[in-house]
Design a protein around this nucleic acid. Structure first.
Length: 275
DNA sequence: GCCCAGGGATGCG
DNA sequence: CGCATCCATGGG
């Protein structure tokens, strides 16, 4: 595929391993709208409008550099797929979702989003996040930005309840109040293990949520988040009835190593779509 | 009414 | 440690 960048536009001709719908609907992002051959995607305070067809993807945005990296356009997914495709379990999932790319999203936005995601469903997660944006994020004119940490510190437990967080409201309040902007800066310089340990120390963050934040918010591809779907996948593929997600997480991340995050997304998208 | 959703916190042994 | 139970909320 050929990538051409202009002042406020990224043009991708003959896209390979880049399917806009698959990339947006594989569960890694909650702020987007798809309408036929168009999509709008939000990250932090930024927006990108996308027109796509089989032969071309055009991304229009005021933040070309940001979204070039956001859509991971420096990564060769053909190579990744080549390494993973031999795997006995993964072949079909990759055939089904070969256009998935793992977005380089914002760490704080992923942290808040995936705290909300715990024991929740995607439509409701989207609603809650939308509520937080419109009530605490900056008005950008035709949309609201994702709230910054200082903005979200103004939210009360009741606000989080109104956002539909349920029992996660108090956890969210605790974490938002405790987090400092220095923490967010420090996170960027920590090792992967240090990041993980810091994250699971926060209320509402366990192993799965921490791994999602690492994978989608900090570009750590060696983690394998195990949710209810991956749990089902694992049991189906191994013909078992394992419920210990820690065991599953360890086994799968050992099996797929540095490519765990990619493998996880192919599995998740395939099984959630088909079953 | 029951079961489920991109699970985590808590308590108990 | 490992394990069971509980947790708001909305949709099917």
């Amino acid at each position: 595929m050929q990538i051409i960048t202009e002042k406020d536009k990224i043009i991708i001709k003959n896209p390979k391993n880049f399917d806009v719908v698959q990339t947006l609907e594989c569960g890694q992002i909650f702020r987007y709208v798809i309408n036929k051959n168009q999509a709008v995607v939000f990250s932090q305070n930024k927006k990108a409008e996308i027109n796509f067809s089989k032969s071309q993807i055009v991304i229009e945005t005021r933040d070309v550099n940001y979204f070039y990296n956001f859509f991971d356009l420096n990564t060769d997914y053909g190579k990744i797929i080549l390494k993973l495709k031999d795997d006995d379990l993964l072949g079909k999932a990759i055939d089904f979702g070969s256009g998935i790319r793992i977005l380089n999203n914002d760490g704080f936005e992923m942290l808040i989003s995936f705290i909300i995601s715990a024991n929740n469903n995607i439509p409701r997660i989207k609603k809650s996040i939308e509520y937080l944006c419109t009530n605490f994020g900056t008005n950008m004119g035709d949309y609201y930005a994702f709230p910054t940490l200082p903005q979200l510190k103004k939210a009360t437990v009741d606000d989080f309840l109104h956002a539909g967080l349920g029992y996660r409201a108090s956890q969210m309040f605790d974490t938002v109040q405790r987090l400092t902007e220095r923490d967010l800066q420090n996170l960027k310089t920590m090792s992967d293990a240090e990041k993980f340990n810091f994250l699971i120390g926060l209320k509402g963050v366990g192993e799965k949520v921490a791994n999602c934040v690492l994978l989608f918010g900090y570009g750590v591809k060696s983690v394998f988040p195990v949710d209810t779907w991956i749990n089902k996948v694992y049991n189906k593929l191994t013909n078992s009835n394992e419920t210990n997600r820690k065991k599953i997480t360890k086994q799968l991340s050992v099996k797929y190593g540095e490519l765990s995050g990619y493998a996880q997304q192919y599995f998740f998208y395939y099984f959630r779509s088909k079953f």
